[in-house]
Design a protein around this nucleic acid. Structure first.
Lengths: 229, 229
DNA sequence: GTCTATAAACGGATAGAC
DNA sequence: GTCTATCCGTTTATAGAC
């Protein structure tokens, strides 16, 4: 431990960095623990210990545990704002023509993947967080930006699938979000399904790539099954 | 058994019923609360209050909170043992020919739905529990019977989709399980996607029916996308 | 077997020294 | 701003009367 004027020797950035570091470490620890264990099962003391800060520091920087949770979700999901702009760019290139289902689905999946790589200190660890956002019970932490993005995807899919009733498109979009969330959540269900190379199956990136033909096939399927044996 | 002869006046079924009632009420309350709120967020006191039993009664009948959780999962998932026999019956009728993807998927979905209606006192409430089984962090509660059932589905799908590589079939089965679990989990994500008649969208039974063509289309899709604009 | 009372530990949040 | 010590409610689990 050092006394007050030791920090002053580092100049102004010393102060800023020490503040930022503590807050950032709390952020990373909270993101990791909430993701791995869920909100209710994670205690403030676990977060403090993982971030190597005193317990009171969390309340000082973030307020309550609930506030901390909302801050984590806001940052992670808020970084997703570019999803709609990717769609905009595609539609501009198409010159007014409807996008294909493949294009829309690929944009959704790739921006989700990009979200899991950039702007996130914890990178590989955080992958479950968005998936968990849909399953965590209680009040929803999902920011309003997300609603707008989903609306953009909805209208694009409506145009791409004119043969389907509107509510059917909506349901299939529900399935699209759900299955991506499920894969992002990354729960290892494969041990249920028998042996397989774990790297092939558990890596979210590989899985989401394999997901493409599956989703497109599902999206473009007829509303009612032809075969009914 | 018991020292007091007061209870003997009710006859043997009096004893059995009183034991069964308390234990059963605890079971139902636990199933409901674990399902609605998750394991960590549910306290023994909530369960005791919902079941109208004293707190100590839970520990007497079930041991620890963890033991209670495992008992609930065992009973709910264990009731799923008929899934494989449904497949067996189909294959016997087919006389050695491979089942169609539609048949397999329908069997999976319908037995999942049947599971949510029968052999469960809480009926409508429990719907999320199986879905949650795949997402609840921590050690897994999934009984070994499930692994065998999944193996049966895996081999049936392998035969139904001879054009796909084995690991691709496995991945698509992963998607099948995932999306059914997601819909069963029943988290209301539809407010993200814009307005829609809630009854059409939130009712699991309707959703799972709409899921059929989507999944079959995804299952039968080519391994690589033809269109790549 | 049922229930009250309590033990022992843990939870989030804060007061106050520095 | 940082950190120690603490308050106080809640948690799981059990002891012991009936």
């Amino acid at each position: 431990m050092h006394s007050d004027n030791v920090k002053d020797d580092m100049g102004p950035e010393g102060d800023v960095r020490s503040r930022g570091d503590a807050k950032e470490r709390i952020f990373v620890a909270a993101e990791t623990l909430f993701t791995e264990q869920g909100y209710a099962a994670t205690s403030m003391r676990m977060i403090a210990r993982a971030a190597s800060v005193p317990l009171a520091s969390i309340n000082y920087h973030f307020g309550s545990k609930r506030d901390l949770m909302e801050a984590v979700y806001q940052r992670v999901l808020g970084a997703d704002g570019r999803r709609s702009s990717y769609l905009d760019k595609l539609e501009r290139n198409a010159g007014g023509a409807p996008l294909t289902v493949t294009q829309i689905v690929r944009t959704f999946i790739e921006s989700t993947l990009r979200l899991s790589r950039k702007d996130n200190v914890s990178g590989a660890v955080f992958k479950q967080l968005i998936g968990r956002a849909y399953f965590e019970p209680g009040d929803d932490f999902i920011p309003s930006e997300y609603v707008q993005i989903m609306d953009r995807y909805r209208s694009a899919l409506m145009r791409a699938l004119p043969g389907l009733p509107e509510d059917e498109v909506l349901r299939r979009m529900y399935f699209l979000v759900g299955i991506v969330a499920y894969v992002m959540a990354g729960r290892d269900v494969m041990h249920l399904l028998g042996r397989c190379a774990p790297s092939t199956v558990n890596d979210p990136e590989t899985l989401l790539h394999a997901l493409m033909p599956f989703i497109v096939g599902g999206m473009e399927a007829p509303a009612t099954l032809a075969e009914d044996a």
